[in-house]
Nucleic acid binder design. Structure first.
Lengths: 108, 108
DNA sequence: TGACGGTATGTCTGTTCTGACATACTCTTG
DNA sequence: CAAGAGTATGTCAGAACAGACATACCGTCA
């Protein structure tokens, strides 16, 4: 991982590896984070293109505005589970979801 | 959701909706569960095709054999996060992961 | 049959994630 | 410059999930 990218991620609160890391994990670790960021972007795009507010989405999900904000910000306290469930609740199809993941290598 | 399928899932410990459900959630809820089951199958297939044991995979993941077993069984106490991280750790590419999700409508 | 390698299941304790709330920030619009 | 709508950020108590361990359940092979 390039240093500049690592800085960008750690700035968001991500922990990239640590002393007792398996070498083998770091690669998949990065892929995992990229997927999450891509889904976060997808969520934001979907919601705003629908013209609904975070608060509205939150109530449809039975969650809270703050959590929606964190989801879209790619906050590390938000799980993949929640991201995926939110996207699905927004009507995202499996194919669309799959596309996001397939293209997650391109997270800038 | 057909009653027979619902029975099959609830037998595994899944809770499908409940009294105070949003109608809108139940559909995506089902999609979500199907994705998880598909990934669970994928994990099992990948591991055994590599000829490694659950215990070996567990140690590579720094997890435990029991958790790997639960993952493969589609146990509801296993999160999507863990499933995805495990698949990635097994070397699954984003494209392959995406394919699993795209095809998750076909979980039998 | 017994022993063994692999897998499944149940349960424990500690960590992580959740929704909720408060509050601060950022735009508009008047 | 308010006032309001929308979004971001910090925190917390409770829920969900984690790894670990014990133990039960297969197969298979001697």
């Amino acid at each position: 991982m390039r240093a500049s990218k690592q800085r960008k991620l750690t700035a968001k609160g991500w922990k990239i590896g640590d002393a007792k890391d398996f070498m083998a994990l770091s690669a998949s670790e990065e892929a995992y984070i990229k997927i999450r960021l891509k889904l976060a972007d997808g969520l934001k795009a979907r919601r705003s293109s629908r013209g609904i507010t975070q608060t509205e989405l939150a109530s449809a999900l039975r969650s809270s505005q703050s959590r929606v904000a964190k989801m879209e910000a790619g906050d590390p306290t938000v799980s993949l589970d929640l991201l995926v469930r939110s996207l699905l609740a927004l009507g995202t199809s499996n194919r669309e979801l799959a596309a996001m993941i397939a293209h997650s290598l391109r997270v800038t």
